[in-house]
């Protein structure tokens, strides 16, 4: 069958395991974490309290992005207003000094908040790699039920601990009702 050999086998993205309930996937997440996997995720129709600890997730780096936004906003607002009011366009308003910190403060606050919010929203999108137009899991019919009543744990083939046969078997042992290899 010469023509069959001509079709290249698609590269493997990873393995997806379906769990019937929160308890089983919560326990499985503990095991996967302790087995040293790093590139994996849990998909659930509802938020699961304690899943962050079960997965061993670290605190989000978003705080540093927000902090950078706030600092930029505060320093930018100070420079902007001193530059405009005290140097470039000196205007006497109510007999007040040109470089008075009092009227600057609300602007400093507002710009700090604005850039913090930008940092929060756009930083969140960047860290989540959004917008994401394609994901290999979406090709799986079974994965659609994750928005209804199923819980899925998927381990990527890029993970150093990934093994084509052993990883799937491990997930089966952890209580997965269905284990499937996912193509990229």
């Amino acid at each position: 069958m010469a023509h069959a050999e001509a079709i290249p086998t698609p590269p493997v993205w990873g393995v997806m395991a379906e769990f019937p309930d929160i308890t089983s996937i919560y326990k499985a997440a503990h095991e996967v974490r302790d087995a040293g996997f790093t590139k994996w995720d849990v998909y659930s129709p509802v938020p699961i309290h304690g899943m962050s600890e079960a997965m061993g997730l670290k605190l989000s780096r978003i705080t540093f992005i927000i902090g950078a936004g706030a600092t930029t906003g505060v320093l930018g607002a100070i420079a902007l207003q001193i530059g405009i009011s005290a140097y470039e366009y000196q205007t006497v308003v109510g007999g007040k000094p040109f470089a008075a910190w009092e009227p600057f403060t609300p602007i400093i606050f507002e710009l700090g908040v604005l850039l913090s919010a930008f940092g929060a929203v756009f930083g969140m999108l960047a860290l989540n790699k959004l917008p994401m137009l394609y994901h290999p899991l979406h090709k799986k019919e079974r994965f659609l039920r994750v928005s209804d009543d199923r819980f899925v744990l998927a381990i990527e083939a890029d993970d150093p601990n990934y093994d084509a046969s052993a990883t799937g078997a491990m997930l089966k042992k952890l209580g997965a009702t269905h284990v499937d290899v996912v193509e990229a």
């Binding site: 109510g94 007999g95 007040k96 009092e102 009227p103 403060t105 609300p106």
Partner: peptide, 8 residues
């Protein structure tokens, strides 16, 4: 402070 300072 700011409102009192501004209105003077």
């Amino acid at each position: 402070y700011m409102l009192i300072w501004y209105a003077n």
